[in-house]
């Protein structure tokens, strides 16, 4: 796969998964670009960097020799770059900027905004090694990037964001924007592009994933994996879980165990702990149901563990490895 689009409900760890995926894809020594399009500087925050500029900047090299570059794309810079690249209109771009045309391009016409942002990512997908960008399509040199990962907008907006053609159609029926949109769309529709969904084993993110996948399928785009993030292993066996969920936990056994462990006030403690166990059992039951619904989709379901104490660079390395072990490194 060459373009990986990562979406998910807010709060599911989309940026973390996109970053780990870029690292996993580079783990065999390739060069991978991670593009962020929401202007949130999520990657910089995740890595503890100051805000990243509008340029492809390399992360600390991976042990494997693979390379991950990061681009924090914003619509305003993309528009100025687009004008300069395609029309040689640097001055006009600056004049437009002064007039508030940035508002024009980036807010009044969201279709235009999206086509600029997706355009940036798809240009990187098409770019050839050594070639000037303008000549990217005609060159026969190998691709500059082996893969591109896009940290895309959340599930609620992903369909509209990727369906740039129809978004732009209302605004520009013919003309250069339309041509550009068509080119972008051909990369997004390519058999080598996948849209991955990040979710938690909770009701709302899972429902949004189901809805989002239906939407992506309806658009004729290809769904990749469902990434279940922050998964926690159950701490009890099936029987104990079932009993606890139904309020039938063996309290006498719990009391005797706590006594055997040398704890005091075992009755009070057993009461408190059995409430905690019951809540855990209910959560695990809900997680089972949710996982079953996600599995029914027939897409690969990949799981990433919940990491105590948050995500840092070494945690990202571990997540990347876990993604690789589950086949998400190609």
């Amino acid at each position: 796969m060459r373009l990986h689009i990562v979406t998910g409900k807010g709060g599911t760890g989309k940026t973390t998964v996109a970053t780990a995926l870029a690292m996993a894809l580079a783990s065999r020594g390739g060069r991978v670009l991670l593009v962020e399009v929401e202007g949130r500087q999520g990657v910089a925050t995740l890595l503890g960097h100051p805000a990243l500029p509008y340029e492809e900047r390399e992360l600390t090299p991976l042990p494997s020799g693979g390379r991950v570059c990061v681009l924090a794309a914003d619509a305003e810079s993309a528009l100025l770059e687009y004008l300069e690249l395609f029309y040689g209109m640097r001055r006009a771009g600056q004049a437009l900027n002064r007039l508030g045309a940035v508002d024009f391009a980036t807010t009044i016409a969201p279709g235009l905004r999206d086509v600029l942002l997706t355009g940036k990512a798809t240009e990187a997908v098409r770019r050839r090694a050594g070639a000037r960008r303008r000549a990217a399509d005609s060159a026969s040199a190998p691709f500059h990037y082996d893969a591109v990962v896009m940290d895309a907008p959340p599930t609620g907006r992903i369909g509209r964001f990727l369906n740039v053609n129809s978004e732009v159609a209302g605004l520009a029926r013919v003309g250069p924007v339309r041509d550009h949109a068509d080119k972008v769309m051909s990369v997004i529709r390519s058999p080598r592009t996948r849209v991955h969904f990040v979710t938690l084993l909770e009701e709302m993110p899972a429902q949004e994933t189901l809805d989002g996948i239906a939407e992506i399928n309806a658009l004729g785009l290809r769904v990749g994996s469902v990434v279940v993030n922050m998964a926690r292993p159950p701490l009890l066996g099936e029987d104990d879980l079932a009993a606890a969920a139904n309020g039938g936990l063996d309290k006498a056994e719990l009391v005797s165990g706590l006594k055997a462990a040398g704890l005091s006030d075992v009755d009070g403690l057993a009461a408190a702990l059995s409430d905690e166990v019951r809540a855990h059992a209910l959560r695990v039951r809900l997680e089972h149901r949710t996982r079953a619904r996600l599995t029914e989709l027939g897409r690969p379901v990949v799981e990433l563990p919940h990491l105590e104490g948050g995500v840092d660079r070494s945690a990202l390395d571990r997540l990347a490895e876990t993604l690789g072990e589950q086949g998400m490194d190609r």
Partner: peptide, 19 residues
């Protein structure tokens, strides 16, 4: 840890880990 070393009371052991 004490319970696990003794190999008994798996329910209490799990409850303590959860806690």
């Amino acid at each position: 840890t004490a319970l696990r070393d003794a190999g008994t009371h798996s329910l209490a052991s799990a409850a303590l880990r959860l806690h």
